Amino acid sequence: MRSIFGYLREYWLSLNKGVFTVSVSLISLMIFCNYHFSISPYLSKQPFYLSVSGWYFIFLLALSFPYLLYYSFKHFTHQFNSKFVALLLIAPAFFAWKMAANLDFAISSNKADNEYWNQVIYWPFKLAVMFICLGITWQFLIKSSHFMALPQKALKQSLTCLC
């Protein structure tokens, strides 16, 4: 069995260094702009639809930029089929919702209890919503025998046990 370093070396040798450098530079610039111009706090204060829209375009730029670079440098060997384009447009929406959704459940009249239970529910709820969104996307676009590296039979058995 090959060591992880063998796989990393193979990846590094096959990597287009120009696209990698420009992509890392863009990501660095985006991180700098987020901290310098306080983009995240600004988007958090906006109405939900503006916050989701802002995050959507940020994630769309971050996810599509490397593909556009490869395509523009004519080093892109894969074809843009309709499923790939659909996934490239849907994925930023999932990330945008995750970033913009500030959920506040009114569980208790006691403020401390309510704050506690919101912390307990917040991340599992977001995880469940993301899992459902990924499952729906997988069902309509991919339909392979595996979902997130889980064989379909094992996944059905797990979900049956949970319900």
Rank of each mutant, 00 (worst) to 15 (best):
M1K: 03
G6W: 08
W12F: 06
W12D: 02
L15F: 04
V19Q: 04
T21W: 09
V22N: 03
S23A: 05
S25D: 04
I27C: 11
I31T: 10
I31Q: 10
C33I: 03
S40F: 00
P41F: 01
Y42E: 06
Q46E: 10
S53G: 09
G54C: 08
L60I: 05
A62D: 06
A62W: 11
F65S: 06
F65V: 03
L68Y: 06
Y70F: 15
H78S: 13
H78I: 02
H78R: 06
F80C: 02
F84Y: 01
L87D: 05
L89F: 04
K98P: 00
M99V: 01
L103D: 15
F105W: 14
A106K: 15
S108E: 08
S109N: 13
N110R: 11
N110T: 10
K111D: 14
A112S: 14
A112P: 03
D113Y: 14
D113F: 14
E115D: 09
E115S: 12
W117L: 15
V120M: 11
I121F: 15
I121R: 07
W123S: 06
P124T: 02
L127E: 01
M130N: 01
F131I: 07
C133T: 00
L134M: 11
G135A: 04
T137S: 14
Q139K: 14
F140N: 12
I142Y: 13
I142G: 12
H146I: 06
H146M: 09
H146Y: 14
M148G: 04
A149C: 12
A149F: 15
P151N: 11
K153P: 09
K153G: 10
L155S: 09
S158D: 07
L159H: 15
T160S: 11
L162G: 06
